[in-house]
Design a protein around this nucleic acid. Structure first.
Lengths: 194, 194
DNA sequence: AAGCAACGCTAGCGATGCTAGGATCGGAGT
DNA sequence: ACTCCGATCCTAGCATCGCTAGCGTTGCTT
């Protein structure tokens, strides 16, 4: 009994090692530098071992995405709960989202940009995804008005995602980045006078 | 003299053929199916010939992107000029943008999502890019208020891009797609009551 | 002690982007 | 007219990719 549990423990440990190596390599050199061979070398196992843990490279990326999404959710949550009021909470959560995208671009990409087969908009999506989206929902509720909260949260999310993605892809100049984020929030929160 | 011009003509023709083949293949089977070998087979030349026209696969994708962006600009322009009024023009141009992204996803991706080295936010960006963005600028001007037109156009673009990208990547359910677009426009145009 | 099953490795497959080197063909100079 | 020369294009190959088949070896189980 104890032997088997030890093996399972070692196996789980190795799996964490693989995911960690993938994350670190991606954050250091980008996802195009993450290859099965390099990962195998890094965890000091042969390549087929990785395939006994994950169905393929996509599955490894998906694992990194879920892990990173949990981090994002935490950061958004602390931003929200430590804000002074609902308006500030909205601004702070949006800023936390933007900061995450900027500070950890490879992780942001694998969560939101790359084509990795994860269930997203369904109940069986990883809990971390729900948690992150919930933060947006919470912070958007006070300004929802007649609009459904979910819908407004989705559109705010889209706006943030669009700004971050276009900027990081070089489509938008970095110069007015902050002003764009501020403008998005101002228009969104309905703080324009009639 | 005439001989050289004939050669140049043939060369230009072949270049168009390559770009067309890349576009068609991408639209039919996605960009992961577009390989130099398949393109070469399609235009009935060996692979090195393609490299005498383009520096690499990225350059071919960039050419497709520029071509597609010209199409997008045209579609947005006709949407704007055939609208009944400024409010309708905004809605129609946004709808044209969304329709383009949905109808030609591979082209949309290579313009706005994929990492292809093109100058974007600078004067030396291809004219088609400027033309497309100009349409957004034009249609946003009436609602700009104190905000700079450029900034507002960029943020509207980001919102549209975010919705389309997240939806196409499976991050947003298709169910309320239209309502999301409508909500974005409503919030953006300042048509919310105070 | 004997067998067996799980495990991890070596080696390889097909495919990718890209390039080096030679063959061939046509215009130019003496 | 004959020779050169440069442009053009192809065959063949390199390094690398994701992924897998098949075999040894190890170590648990009976």
């Amino acid at each position: 009994m104890s032997i088997q549990t030890r093996r399972e423990r070692e196996r789980a440990e190795r799996e964490r090692l693989i995911v960690r190596a993938a994350r670190e390599l991606a954050e250091a050199e980008g996802w195009e530098a993450v290859t099965i061979r390099r990962l195998a070398e890094r965890v000091e196992y042969s390549q087929p071992v990785l395939y006994s843990h994950f169905a393929g490279k996509d599955a490894i990326m998906a694992a990194v995405a879920v892990e990173g999404c949990a981090d994002l959710a935490v950061e958004m949550r602390t931003a929200r709960t430590s804000a002074s009021g609902p308006e500030q909470a909205l601004a702070d959560v949006a800023a936390a989202y933007a900061a995450f995208a900027e500070r950890r671009p490879a992780i942001y990409d694998v969560i939101f940009n790359q084509a990795v087969d994860l269930p997203f908009a369904t109940p069986e999506a990883p809990e971390a995804l729900h948690a992150a989206f919930d933060e947006l929902r919470q912070v958007v509720r006070p300004i929802a008005g007649d609009d459904e909260v979910d819908l407004l949260a989705e559109v705010l999310w889209s706006g943030l995602h669009g700004i971050m993605t276009l900027t990081r892809g070089g489509r938008l100049p970095r110069e007015y980045h902050e002003r764009r984020l501020a403008l998005l929030l101002r228009r969104f929160a309905g703080w324009t006078r009639p």
